[in-house]
Amino acid sequence: MDQIESNPGVPIRAIQEELQRKYEVSISGDKVFKAKSLATKMVVGDCTKQYAVLRDYVLELQATNVDTTVKIQVESKTNCNNSTRQFKRMYVCLGALKKGFKIEMRDFFGFGCNGIYPLAYAIVESENTDSWKWFWECLGDDLDMHANSNFAFISDRQKGLIPAIAHIFPCAEHRYCLRHIYENMRKVWRSTEYKEHLWNCAKATTIPEFETLMREFISYDVEAYAWFMKIPPHHWARSHFSGRVINKCTGPLTPTGERLLQANISSALQYTARWNGVSKYQVKGPWHDQHVVDMGQMTCSYRKWELTGMPCKHAIATINEMADCNTLFWIIL
């Protein structure tokens, strides 16, 4: 009992070994499992009985967290004479988190346990399309999201999530976590060359550059190329992303943002910009790097400016040519 209380997750094997060492008896794993289950119930209580006080928990949450949303869904009744109902799902969005998100309202959602800003969570019967649809309907109600909302999502392609997002938010962008794509790839193709090919293709900012890198991939390994092309590039390749999901902060840059900006400023010193009519400039640099910057539209044919919201080296070279460096920070979106 004491061992279970101090360490509820103690493995069955460890308990068997302790009994063998202390009492010199050998007990089967099934008997140890049953004994552990009984001891756990005595220490933490019967889990099934906790459902009876679930609504009390909800009322406490809402009383201590203003504007908190909690939704509980139960299984459909199979017996009309049964007075109890079976728990199915629960959705929670704390009021303070909801308010904070609405104030900043970045059009971006990520999935995982290490999110930058936790927003809502749910307990469901299983991870499937139906439960994901229910979750997004609940969150959509909380955040006033509609079918035509231009949000972007990033995930590791959890089961059922892809069709759920496509159904609830057909206008949204759904990007896939490249690290998880690589982990799946590594099960078959383990060498570092494959990783380098993948990341180079993913980081390309223009479609022609992406296609050139993918042709190199074909020459390296046709089977690996075919595997990647089963995943639509607009889900994982930067060259195929739209530019609407960018950093919209209006205050000081983050340390990472400042570091990236200073790197771009340094790189821009190697480039020259020449006016090319109206608001466009032709920018040239080392290794035949040449792009067109449109200051009126705040775009660059390199596309990194649109994708990140931060002026690239070509844009900064243009700003230097315009001799108005004070506009640099105004241009950062």
Rank of each mutant, 00 (worst) to 15 (best):
Q3M: 14
V10R: 11
A14Q: 12
A14W: 12
I15S: 01
L19P: 01
Y23A: 10
Y23K: 14
E24L: 08
S26L: 07
G29Y: 12
D30S: 15
F33Y: 11
A35G: 08
A35I: 02
K36A: 03
S37F: 04
A39G: 03
A39K: 06
T40N: 05
K41D: 14
G45D: 08
R55D: 12
D56A: 15
Y57Q: 10
L59K: 15
L61E: 05
A63P: 06
T64H: 12
N65H: 12
T68W: 05
T69I: 11
T69V: 14
V70P: 05
V70G: 06
K71L: 14
K71G: 09
S76I: 03
K77G: 00
N79S: 08
Q86E: 07
F87A: 03
L94T: 02
L94V: 09
G95T: 08
A96L: 09
K98N: 03
K102T: 11
M105I: 02
D107E: 12
C113L: 15
Y117F: 12
A120I: 01
A120G: 02
Y121F: 15
Y121G: 02
Y121I: 04
W132A: 10
L139R: 15
D142I: 10
M145L: 15
H146N: 11
A147P: 04
N148L: 08
N150V: 07
I154D: 03
R157Q: 13
R157P: 03
L161E: 06
L161C: 10
P163N: 06
C171T: 10
C171W: 09
L178P: 08
H180C: 07
H180Q: 10
I181Y: 03
M185D: 09
S191D: 13
S191N: 09
H197I: 13
N200H: 05
T206E: 14
E211C: 14
E211F: 01
T212V: 13
T212W: 07
F217H: 10
Y220I: 10
D221N: 15
A226P: 00
M229Q: 12
P232W: 01
H235A: 09
H235C: 12
W236D: 05
S239K: 00
V245Y: 04
V245W: 06
K248E: 11
T250E: 14
P252V: 00
L253I: 01
T256W: 10
G257C: 04
G257N: 04
G257D: 02
R259D: 14
L260H: 11
S266C: 13
G277D: 05
S279Y: 13
K280T: 10
Q282C: 09
P286D: 13
W287R: 07
H288N: 14
H288R: 09
D294E: 04
G296V: 01
G296R: 00
C300W: 05
Y302I: 03
K313D: 02
A317M: 02
T318R: 03
I319H: 01
A323N: 13
C325Q: 14
L328D: 11
